[in-house]
Write a protein that binds this DNA or RNA. Structure first.
Lengths: 248, 248
DNA sequence: TCTAATTGTCTATTGATCTAGACAAGCATA
DNA sequence: TATGCTTGTCTAGATCAATAGACAATTAGA
């Protein structure tokens, strides 16, 4: 007897279509390694029985997962798992974006979507310990691992101290290196706040998510070794591709 | 001119009903403080125009939020906001459940749902540095702030070292105090991993969430000052009531 | 008291989702 | 090659979600 047993029943009339609930469950089961023994999703008829729905409903769920590139169905054989693991993103006093990911993905891509000068809003000013309206450099970036988008960020830096942030980042592709180019050799994470919610339309597009997906939004402040804030950022992680690991 | 401007359009045919997407947006806007000026949600007709849907669809969304107790509609007046803020849960080297929450909620409730002896599964054994199958005490608890469920936990303790964990916890209502009663005066958080996903049926019931809601699941290990793990736990937070704050 | 703004209720219609059943087509293995 | 298992496709009907419009009921303010 395997671990099977009836999975918990899914909910009807909740505003979330059954096929989407089932897709979410299967996605979770895949990343939990429930199907590692065979490398395949159970047959559609078995899934239909397990969830107590019609086979067509399961097919809609699998079609959505195939669309994401998570599984691939082959007539006559079954539905194979193409990708499974979540990337672990470490958060610690010395959080550096690329470093922690380097061991888990072959190729890390960072893309600068845009940059501009903005006056600090109340919230950002407070986080950076500046007067509201102080000039900031804003960077909008998207990062990916092996071609899959993992996170989208909005970062703010004090313009007076780091006037060339955008240029350096565009050239070097790294905040750490851009800081170094402007005379800041070391910095530490002061705090991070994490919230989870449904992705909005912009995030769906940037992270190539399917509608209804979840993002984890981390707001964080980095400071130099004297404790002066040097960066405030809002990073949104694709929740089904990432986990956050906090080392304390 | 206020901040209004057309909000980003919502997505159709995604497997998530429009009324649920709108409910999620309004819930987010409330916790962001967008409606603090009036303490009221905009009129149904205004919301319908903003989201580009029929008024009845907005009404479904508001009905769901009223069901959660987040808003209350009064005929002729409008729809008032009853509750808004997210509770911030601090995670640091010295993470203690009650301490961080005490300032934000008047009354903290912890409830022991059940306890039992279980052999350690592979994953839990690895986290605690024990041999698979080692005896553990499992505690199932739910915690709430001012009457609203905030988190549900599964905690595991090595039976050999803490044989009376369940009894002490039941009496004292606190893991920290139960440790102290068994001779462990201090412990620290070794690591925490955070994932966000849709709540399953059990979590919906335990945390009194509406279907389709999001939970943040934190897996963590606490260790004594010699670095020996003393607790492994899986805590699921109601994502729309909590944010996690990491101090590094 | 009258009016405007707001929520509450009803009916009707359209489109999306889910169920049900049947059969075709491709793959693996005896 | 023959058989069984699996995915692919089609049709038809039932239920849920969303639109549309009309009007009632309540509140606040002129």
């Amino acid at each position: 007897m395997g671990k099977m047993a009836a999975r918990r029943a899914i909910e009807r009339q909740t505003g979330v279509a059954l096929w989407r609930q089932i897709a979410d469950r299967i996605r979770l089961a895949i990343s939990n390694g429930d199907y590692d023994a065979t490398g395949m999703v159970p047959p559609e008829t078995a899934l239909a029985a397990e969830f107590g729905v019609n086979r067509h409903t399961v097919r809609s769920a699998l079609a959505a997962l195939a669309e994401e590139g998570l599984v691939r169905a082959v007539q006559g054989r079954g539905t194979m798992i193409e990708r499974k693991e979540r990337v672990s993103y470490p958060i610690s006093r010395r959080t550096r974006f690329s470093q922690g990911l380097a061991r888990q993905v072959k190729e890390i891509g960072t893309k600068l979507l845009g940059h501009r000068q903005v006056p600090a809003s109340g919230e950002v000013a407070a986080a950076l310990g500046l007067a509201p309206g102080s000039p900031l450099v804003e960077l909008r970036t998207v990062s990916s691992g092996d071609g899959r988008p993992l996170s989208a960020s909005l970062s703010y830096f004090p313009s007076e101290r780091f006037p060339k942030m955008a240029e350096h980042y565009a050239r070097l592709g790294s905040v750490t290196k851009a800081f170094a180019a402007q005379g800041l050799d070391d910095y530490v994470r002061a705090w991070t706040e994490i919230v989870a919610r449904h992705a909005d339309a912009e995030e769906l597009a940037l992270l190539k998510l399917s509608p209804g997906a979840i993002v984890m939004e981390a707001q964080s402040v980095n400071a130099d070794l004297d404790g002066r804030p040097v960066e405030y950022s809002r990073t949104r992680f694709a929740a089904d591709r990432m986990k956050l690991r906090i080392e304390t």
